[in-house]
C-alpha cells in the first residue's frame, strides 16, 4: 500500500536525498505501524520528536492505512532536552543575602 511521509524543519534531512519537497510517497507493507515507519527512516523516537498520523498524535503502535500521512518534526530546538535530562541532580540551595528576603 502507498502512504505519505512528511518531514518538517531539520527532519527534512531524513528524507531521501532526491526528495525535492517535504513529502514523499512510499510503498509499504500492509499492517506496518507508525513506529516501524519512523524507524525505517532513522527518525528519532521519544520526547525529542513530534510524530503525527493524519495530523493527530498517534500511539507508535497504531497501524498505518493506505493513503495515510505520517509526519514528524523535532520537538525541541534540536533535541535540546537531551542535555537537560542527562544533567545530574545537583540541586543547589536557594541563596539569600542578608537583610533581603523576598517573602
Amino acid at each position: 500500500m502507498r502512504v505519505r511521509l512528511r518531514l518538517f524543519a531539520t527532519y527534512r534531512q531524513y528524507l531521501p536525498s532526491k526528495a525535492e519537497a517535504s513529502t514523499i510517497e512510499i510503498e509499504v507493507q500492509e499492517g506496518i505501524s507508525v513506529g516501524d515507519l519512523i524507524t525505517m527512516f532513522d527518525i528519532p523516537q521519544g520526547a525529542e520528536s513530534v510524530i503525527l498520523l493524519n495530523g493527530i498524535t498517534p500511539s507508535l503502535s497504531d497501524r498505518v492505512k493506505e493513503g495515510d500521512i505520517v509526519s514528524a518534526f523535532p520537538a525541541m530546538a534540536g533535541g535540546v532536552l537531551h542535555s537537560y535530562h542527562n544533567e545530574t541532580e545537583n540541586k543547589e540551595k536557594s541563596k539569600c543575602t542578608d537583610g533581603m528576603v523576598a517573602f
Binding site: F8, A9, T10, F73, P74, M76, A77, G78, V80, Y84
Partner: peptide
C-alpha cells in the same frame, strides 16, 4: 554551553 551544544546538533529555530 548546553544550548550551544544542542544548536550544533541541529536547531530548527536557528536553521529556519
Amino acid at each position: 554551553r548546553e544550548v550551544g551544544d544542542d544548536v550544533k546538533k541541529g536547531s530548527s529555530l536557528r536553521e529556519y
